[in-house]
């Protein structure tokens, strides 16, 4: 047997182990598959980060190119492990603070141009049915999300109600698309079992 055939048999066994959940909920086969997945994914994460990130930063950037200033962020990153030492957990918060500060600053400095463009682009010329629907849905969806305003009467009441219905159409279509994606994934798994491994389908 070739490696490819062994691979298909292994893949089929793995799929059956995972799908055994459909027959009997949390059963030994499913739990076994679940733990194997977590172990391999973690191992891959460690090896991948080492090979593509850590090694180039240390060997190339620091040692070869002499960029020793990277020792500072390296130390900041290592401080997160203080979380595991009782009494020193607060040190890990310094690393968290660095990341959160960068994220918050980035959200204030760089995100507004992106979402403001979306706001500007929503004010389109109302010269077609589609444009009118588009504009109304954006505005009424925002009305629905304005939780700090009283919406028990007037335009806000009917606007937010329309927004709610419009959001349901959006969620329904998103749901439909996701379901179709799941179905194609199921078909893909069945093809591995019946076509690639058992050769029952051509």
């Amino acid at each position: 047997m070739t490696l490819e055939q062994w691979g298909n048999i292994t893949a089929t066994i793995c799929i059956i182990m995972a799908w055994s959940y459909l027959y009997k909920g949390e059963n030994p086969l499913y739990t076994f598959a679940e733990h194997i997945l977590v172990a391999i994914a973690t191992a891959y994460g460690i090896a991948y980060t080492w090979e593509t990130q850590l090694k180039p930063r240390v060997m190339t950037d620091m040692v070869k190119n002499g960029k020793w200033s990277l020792l500072i962020p390296a130390i900041i990153g290592i401080l997160i492990y203080a979380w595991f030492f009782k009494g020193y957990e607060w040190i890990a918060r310094l690393t968290m603070a660095f990341w959160i500060g960068h994220g918050a600053g980035y959200a204030l400095a760089f995100n507004p141009p992106v979402f403001l463009k979306q706001v500007f682009d929503s004010f389109i010329r109302l010269n077609s049915f589609n444009n009118i629907v588009y504009f109304l849905v954006v505005i009424t969806a925002l009305m629905y999300f304005a939780f700090t305003l009283r919406k028990d009467r007037g335009i806000l009441k009917y606007g937010s109600q329309f927004g709610r219905y419009a959001l349901m159409v959006a969620f329904g279509s998103a749901y439909g698309s996701i379901t179709m994606a799941y179905l194609s994934l199921i078909i893909g798994q069945l093809q591995i079992i019946f076509k690639d491994t058992l050769h029952l389908v051509k």
């Binding site: 994460g45 980060t49 990130q53 930063r57 990277l70 962020p73 900041i76 960068h102």
Partner: peptide
């Protein structure tokens, strides 16, 4: 940010 998160992997 990248380096610090890499070292926290």
């Amino acid at each position: 940010i990248t380096v610090s998160s890499v070292f926290a992997f």
